[in-house]
């Protein structure tokens, strides 16, 4: 360079990368090591083990590590098990759609109609409070609600809306769906309300000034902008519903068997390989569902 003066020391020696330099550059990784190791040992290894065991040979009383496809064949050739797969998917779809349909208006109210931050927080906390009761007890609380002598039937009869109690309410797929929707709908409301509350009000005002109707504004602005919230909510709900078994066993009187229930039963009777097959199938479904949902919106960019 032409403009070096006497003030500027010459020198081209590159400083050696000594040990301290290494630590200063890579010390960061040390912070991550405990968490990563924990997750690999107790998350990746168990899941890998599940895949591995699904190919083991299962006999009535024991299991051996000889690899076989037998458990897989049994699963897909059995009406009971394949039926459970279809039932799981069906209930998941019902719950997903219902949590969205039921939850969206509430989220719309919290995120768009109420523009006061304090009131928004109060409403959201109100929705979250039931979570302070044990999940299992909340599920059980549906029994006196839905039963033949349950609260709903009593109320409907009092108001003269029905003559005979509705029996289909409890110990059916319907009761399972009702229970799940109530338990998981908040996971849909939260993220959507969050995204709706972030929408810049001037955007909507501008659209209104341009003469857009309320419906057009909703369709063209509000809904697209809330979509990342819908996707996050849908992921939450899907993950929880697909792995569900407690609600089904509490509210269906063991008549509705989901994949989760089968896993529990199989583990109970020490049929590890078979439980593992179902576990792998659930994992695959889950992966497909989440990837599919993530295709709708680029979350990293949207959030």
């Amino acid at each position: 360079m032409a403009d070096s003066t006497a003030d500027m020391a010459a020198g081209t020696a590159h400083a050696a990368r000594d040990g301290r330099g290494f630590l200063a550059r890579h010390g960061n990784y040390l912070l991550l090591v405990p968490g990563v190791i924990w997750m690999i040992l107790f998350l990746v290894v168990p899941l890998g083990m599940m895949v591995y065991v699904s190919f083991w040979t299962q006999t009535t009383f024991s299991i051996s590590s000889d690899l076989t496809l037998q458990s897989w064949i049994t699963f897909f050739s059995s009406d009971t098990y394949f039926g459970a797969l279809l039932r799981t998917l069906k209930i998941w779809l019902y719950v997903l759609v219902l949590t969205f349909v039921i939850g969206y208006p509430t989220a719309l109210f919290i995120g768009q109609v109420v523009r006061n931050k304090t009131v928004q927080t109060v409403l959201l906390v109100t929705c979250v409070i039931p979570f302070w009761t044990s999940f299992l007890i909340r599920v059980l609380a549906w029994r006196p609600m839905l039963g033949v002598e349950g609260a709903i039937n009593i109320l409907l009869q009092k108001f003269g809306l029905i003559a005979e109690p509705i029996e289909v309410l409890l110990f059916t797929e319907l009761s399972v769906v009702i229970g799940m929707v109530q338990i998981y709908v908040v996971f849909m409301v939260g993220p959507i309300a969050f995204m709706l509350a972030r929408i810049d009000e001037s955007l909507i005002e501008a659209a209104r000034d341009l003469g857009a109707s309320t419906w057009t504004i909703f369709r063209k602005i509000i809904f697209p902008l809330s979509l990342p919230g819908v996707v996050v909510g849908a992921i939450f709900v899907s993950v929880m519903v697909l792995g569900e078994f407690a609600t089904a066993s509490a509210l269906s009187g063991r008549k509705v068997n989901l994949l989760g229930n089968i896993i529990v039963t199989q583990v109970g009777s020490l049929k590890w390989a078979f439980a593992a097959v179902i576990g792998v199938i659930l994992t695959v479904i889950m992966a497909v569902v989440i990837t599919g949902l993530l295709r709708i919106v680029n979350l990293r960019r949207a959030l």
């Binding site: 997750m39 998350l43 168990p46 899941l47 992921i235 993950v239 792995g243 078994f245 889950m286």
Partner: peptide, 27 residues
């Protein structure tokens, strides 16, 4: 990679993780 590895912990259904861990413990 680290981000998704960690977040996976809350995404994997509990019953699968429980099953996997039981298998590992058994082995």
């Amino acid at each position: 990679f680290v981000f998704y590895l960690v977040v996976l912990g809350m995404m994997v259904p509990g019953v699968l993780l429980g099953l996997g861990m039981a298998l590992v413990a058994d082995q």
